[in-house]
Amino acid sequence: MIDYVVQQTLNALSFGAEYALIALGLAIVFSIMGLVNFAHGEVIAIGGYSMMVMAAIAFKNPIIIIVGAIFAAVIMAIFLERIAFRPVRYADATTGLLTAFGVSLILQNLFLLLVSPRPIAVTSMYFLDWPIKLGTIRISSLQIFETLATLLAILLLVLFLKRSFLGIAMRAASLDFEMVRLMGIRANRVIATAFAISGLLAGIAAIFIIARRGAVDPTLGFNPVLKAFVACVVGGFGSLPGAVLGGFLLGALEVGMLVILPQSYGGMKDAFVFAVIAIILVWRPEGILSPQKEKGDKI
């Protein structure tokens, strides 16, 4: 029984880690510029496709592929900000959300058009995945890597936000963006950094998603981002601790549903998870850890 609990807890952690990674990427952009970046999933997909390309042109070294995939995701995120989101930077949230939807739609179909509508095998990350037996508990090394990588990423992000100049500027910008500009810090620089970080986190997520699925298709990132989006809202949109909390909560909820629901209802897992989320939102419309917003009314 204890074994079972430990096993499921580890499952929940690794699920939650993935959602937390993606949710953090969404939250960091939202906290700075109020944009709900639905195209984040396609940044993840770019990570996946870049691995496919690198494998195809005979890169065998996994370090190169990992670094390359993260790099591709970062570049993609910065690129999207530059061409699609900069024009709607100061527009209302609905405009930003719909723009991001449009961008997501374009990219998904570009993958479909330029690569293939079908999944393409990418096996170069399989080496991360081997079974580990601890007594009667059986887990995958991937789960451990994923949880550790997420914790490490969170730790580095916290250090960056607390210690570095740009990090402090970004925290300031999430409170009062205009005041940061009035300190002489370029808006473009802060926002590009936010997108770069979100791309970095998406790239890490892409590596683990590919390692688990072994294939890339145009909707690779869409469903995970949908979940991460929900995690963000539950945690309190724009709050970074909220995104992490929401991510792990969602992971726990999913595993919990798989445990509780009878086998025949397994397919309905998402329906139940989303229903619970809706109920949480009714209870706390602003999310569990909603960020403080303080802005001057003038200027």
Partner: peptide, 17 residues
């Protein structure tokens, strides 16, 4: 394949911008 999706996405983005 996918051209119609690209067109729809482009319509949304262009109108929003």
């Amino acid at each position: 394949l996918g051209l119609s999706g690209i067109a729809l996405g482009a319509v949304i983005v262009i109108i929003m911008v």
